[in-house]
Design a protein around this nucleic acid. Structure first.
Lengths: 193, 193, 193, 193
DNA sequence: AATGAATGAGATTTCATTCAT
DNA sequence: GATGAATGAAATCTCATTCAT
């Protein structure tokens, strides 16, 4: 995920671990440095401030997540398959990168407005993408016509929340079962008679 | 909601406003006191520490939310009506008490373990309640048999997440439309043969 | 010792107990009030400040101690008997009024200069008194001629320090034995040719 | 005494000066830092807390005092010479290190139990040492048989108290005269017919 | 480039004192 | 007179950040 050799990545890795464990505010820069095996001052060679470190972590995490999100949709056939693939990948990501997920879920609050706007835009982009997906599926007669934006939000809402739960309390069942169970319910809700 | 006369409530009100605005960590006790129009020391006459203030705010908010949640389900007839009522109330609550909702959503992380356990229990209780609702609806033939727990989680997941979005970015549409749109999709997902 | 009925005395009693136990700085005015069974504000009806309370306690204790000190010397015959009586009374006082003794020993530091001067004067008076006692005993041939001031200081020094130890670590032996043992050694030191 | 170069020693020196002058409680950490010519935070780099600073000061002072105490006894011949040497060294120490002496005398109260026990043990060790000294002098026929422990306590009691006085009110006379005068009286009290 | 000792702004918390009831 | 809720000055301590080495 990160290049281990790179010192910037070492810091990232250490910060993700500690922020996930103890939160941004309860983690000191010194602890991050120690965990990364470097000196405290060195952190400031790579990031202008603690805030900036968080900012870049959130950007990294978000890019990383969305990269896989869009990649996964490309290949698959019908809408249902796409949705299952999205859900599966979502849960896989949350499971594999629990630390990253936790930081994104919990600490996205403590950022400056401009980053907040950027994040919202990213998420809006995804919603829009899903809306298009749903709309064209409706055009194909795969699903019925509903409020596509709301449906998209419902999908992402369920994914985020179940993902969060999985991260916190180690959800039972495999990622596959989880993904298929959810999409199954959604699918019937959306599909034509 | 709070009794204005009561000083404890004044502090609660001020803290909800500021914690919602700037976050728990970025708000000082002095600011809370100032906002409440009292002296810094007075806050400590009512709450042993800043942490304890947050703790009691979360307990208050959670109790307040769940009280309305369970009350709203009582009266209504079939499952669909119940679900719509739940969703409507949920969005109404989030809309009316944006500050409370924000604090609960964002700051629940910074609490001690025992309160965390208490919160999780509360949420589990709700999930269980929904599971029973779904189960008996399935027994009545209202809906088909699915993984009830997963369905319950999907419902609450969607509610939480849409609620959060509504709080942050001022969701378009009335609470009624939102609630009915969501439940409509869910309902078909659950009821279709 | 104190008149129990009097509210001023109640405060004194409470303060001696708590200051002896936890020290002047670690005792709050509220605790003193509570111990005295009165309201916090009432303390300020009797003493202008916490400092002033300590001040008056030290004056009270010192007067009380010196009163018994001078009274006890009056009656007795020769120098040795007087010294034994002084020592006995000293240890009796320290034993009976451990709390008072502790406060005097430990907290006399935290007073204003003028009280300090007053205390030093009091002590100087006692030294002077002892010097006279010794001088006239020397004139009578009871003891040899030594540096009377130094001898007086040695006496009081030993008494204070042994008293302090008795208060802290519950000295073994009765007050009588202690007094007689000490004066025996001192006496020979003073009387030997 | 302290190495001036060392920053830990600078803090010690500043703290001894200020604690002696104004007392532990009336001295702020910031003042200590200022006196030491460093920043407030730096103090905490060397001592975990204000209490810990006092604790280490008391340990330092006690070790320093007892080191010279035992060293001084080694060389000298008979008991009387030893006692004189002890007294001389005691007064010399109190005179030279007034600040240290004051802190030890006044602030030893405000320490945690474990350090208190350690200090009591140290003092007990000295008492025991003196008891042995007296006992073997009695065996040699140098002095008569008395309650050795009481005698030892009397000696240390007189030394402590006279030392305290010397520190507070600038005792008249040289250390030599003081020491010899005291021991002279004691000696006759202790010695054989 | 890397370090970590030094810094001081700023946070939480305590508590002597006041004063309206 | 008695009370205790309210106050805010002042203390301890933390930690992001700087900078000389």
């Amino acid at each position: 995920m990160f290049q281990k050799s790179d010192k910037r990545s070492q810091i990232f890795q250490a910060a993700f671990k500690l922020f996930a464990q103890k939160g941004f505010f309860h983690t000191t820069v010194e602890e991050v440095a120690q965990e990364a095996g470097i000196g405290k001052g060195t952190v400031y060679g790579y990031f202008a401030s603690k805030q900036e470190l968080l900012r870049q972590m959130l950007i990294f995490a978000t890019d990383y997540y969305f990269d896989t999100f869009f990649r996964v949709v490309e290949g698959n056939g019908g809408l249902k398959e796409k949705l299952v693939a999205i859900a599966k990948e979502h849960f896989r990501f949350f499971n594999e990168h629990r630390e990253i997920a936790k930081v994104v879920l919990y600490e996205h609050r403590y950022i400056t407005d401009d980053l907040g706007d950027w994040l919202i835009e990213k998420e809006q982009g995804r919603i829009q993408y899903l809306v298009e997906l749903l709309r064209s599926a409706a055009a194909n007669g795969e699903i019925r016509v509903v409020d596509f934006k709301m449906a998209a939000r419902m999908i992402t809402g369920a994914l985020w929340n179940l993902g969060m739960e999985a991260v916190i309390s180690s959800f039972s069942g495999t990622e596959e079962e989880l993904a298929e169970g959810i999409i199954d319910i959604l699918w019937l809700g959306l599909s034509r008679q």
